[in-house]
Design a protein around this nucleic acid. Structure first.
Lengths: 209, 209, 209, 209
DNA sequence: AATGAATGAGTGTTCATTCAT
DNA sequence: GATGAATGAACACTCATTCAT
């Protein structure tokens, strides 16, 4: 039964990687990105340092794994939503909902990998890739919205960057996201602002004038 | 003539610091923040490593100098504008104009320190301080705008973060900023979006519905 | 058999530390304390510098290890003697005997750490501690002797310092200590001088007069 | 008048060296031996670092100058005393008196150069030379005393080392030396102990027995 | 003769990576 | 396959010494 053994082996591998993921997060939590050493990760995982290198080619590899593990679900959630062929605004809304939920669940890690901005040195490439991928993904929504006539015609990629930037800005101010109502508030704030702006009628007049 | 000598000395000091500034930027450019070592900066500046330490107390000091040199003008521009007692929207507009001009002038450095998000590990304290200071500064504008009745009443600090995030998002997509018209376009895009949102009337109906 | 492995591991650790001890002594011998660098110790031990740090937390740690290794046995010998509840003079005598034997055995290291007075900069704390501890330890002997009526009443701590100083003085003149008779001679000299002084009757008269 | 100029020059040189002496002592006082850098000495002396090197060939040279300046007077005092052709005991007594006075006057420096034992790394050669010179010097006294019949016949050099060691031991316990009476007490203690020992008659019996 | 900026070898220490067991 | 000891390149930083001005 080499087949079964292989499967089992693969499963074990996955479990190990999972363990390393959690160990890494724990270390990141306790020592920050600068203090994340392979020694500490191995110790946190309860294995010898050498073993780490059986599962990851190096530190960069490990961090990319962690990064991906945190980021990927958001992309997948989007893909799932997009598959449902909804109107752009609902797509946007649904995606934001999923995003906020995800951030709420992985608050600690998010803070470390995104807000504190400290890991970026080590995973710049994958970071940029991610950021760009997210931009492209969102751009399709805006493209769709423009076609639907609900968004003003504009470069969709630029819109995506603005939207993502605005969202990141809100998240960087660390609003409470634990309770569903909190998330609802933030959701309304982001979508409302991005769709309708912050100006009153008076303000809009002042601006146009 | 100790007076003249002193002045000359001070001028030389400034020139050295300027040279180190450029050397640091060059190293950051080539090796990223993680690869920015004192050795490399010294080599790039064409001096011995020890000399660096005559002008900066340490790596952190050097990086803060670079960071400040890039960031401070924006804050100062804001202060100058704010002193003029203008309406909030004009203040916002003026600040963005100054910002875009500044970014255009220091494009390379900006990319390194802000977009790539990479220097943050080493100057997190000053970085976070800066980010928060910028937030607070902008918040006063939004507060004023709310009082003027041109912005919808909302947490000014949150508005500031959204605005800054959105702006950062746009800059991250690296729009051309060399020509004044380019900047005008980006300016219009940001202000317009933030004040009026991206939705058409139809979109707004769809959203409210 | 984790038991055996652990023991073996511990033994290996001890051997490594022992090797570093000897390497350190060799380096101290050749380059003096100021010239004792971690590089040189590692080189003398024939290992990479990094390995040193697996066994010692730092330079101070290493030096303290060496120092302790040399000094501790003397203290322990004293404790053992003191436990035997002997008269003060025999205690003194016994301690000196043990000390001379110990110095004979570790002549080279002693010269480095004590006579040359050179290591002290780096281990001043532990040195001073040691010196004071030795003083206190000996003071109890003199206190006991005073109570027994065999020593003239005087500040015991001062007596201890005098005794230790005198002994150190003798050792600094590097008397031969290899043979038991040599040690016997030195022993007699020190004890005799400290107990009865160096003056003849005539000298005593001259002094008192 | 090149003659006068030369003399003046030499005098200036002496004054400079004197200033550096005091600056060095001040630095040693404030920062310890490990913290005594040429920079600090120059700053303390109020001159440029480069000037230091006009008067001293290097750090070792400077430290030797300071050391000598502190130690030499004791030797000279001895020479002066010795020239007076006194009995050995009075010579010893007179020398100790001068020594205690000297130590009292230069207490701070002494502590740094002798007790703290930290400078020795840098001036080991001159230190050893000094220690040996002192030994030889004192040995002549003991030799004389033996010839006078006031000291028991014994290796004079060994006696000298014992005497100096005992004295050093007393000084290391930092007895008060400010007042003449204090010094008198210490003087009596050292001379008394070294000449007559610390044993009572009972103790002597116990020892001989 | 004085200055102090420049030098650069050297210091202790860290840590990602390798590899013999 | 796991281990963890060994490695050694790198790093930030210091400071005695030199030398152009």
């Amino acid at each position: 039964m080499p087949r079964l053994t292989d499967i089992r082996k693969q499963a074990l591998d996955e479990m190990m990687k999972e363990a390393f993921f959690e160990a890494t997060v724990a270390v990141l939590n306790e020592h920050g990105v600068e203090g994340m050493t392979m020694d500490r990760v191995a110790a946190a995982a309860g294995v010898a340092k050498g073993s780490l290198y059986r599962y990851f080619r190096g530190k960069r590899d490990l961090l990319e794994f962690v990064f991906t593990k945190v980021v990927d679900p958001i992309f997948q959630a989007f893909e799932e939503l997009a598959a449902k062929q909804q109107p752009a605004i609902e797509l946007l809304s649904g995606h934001l909902e999923a995003l906020l939920e995800h951030v709420a669940k992985h608050a600690r890690v998010h803070r470390l990998l995104f807000e504190d901005d400290a890991a970026h040195g080590l995973l710049q490439p994958s970071e940029r890739r991610t950021s760009e991928a997210a931009g492209r993904q969102m751009a399709t929504v805006f493209q769709q919205g423009i076609e639907e006539g609900v968004f003003r015609p504009q470069d969709p990629l630029l819109l995506a960057h603005m939207y993502l930037g605005l969202t990141k800005g809100v998240l960087q101010s660390r609003p409470p996201l634990d309770e569903p109502e909190h998330r609802k508030d933030v959701h309304r704030l982001i979508i409302g602002t991005f769709l309708s702006g912050i100006a009153t009628d008076k303000g809009r007049v002042a601006f146009d004038g």
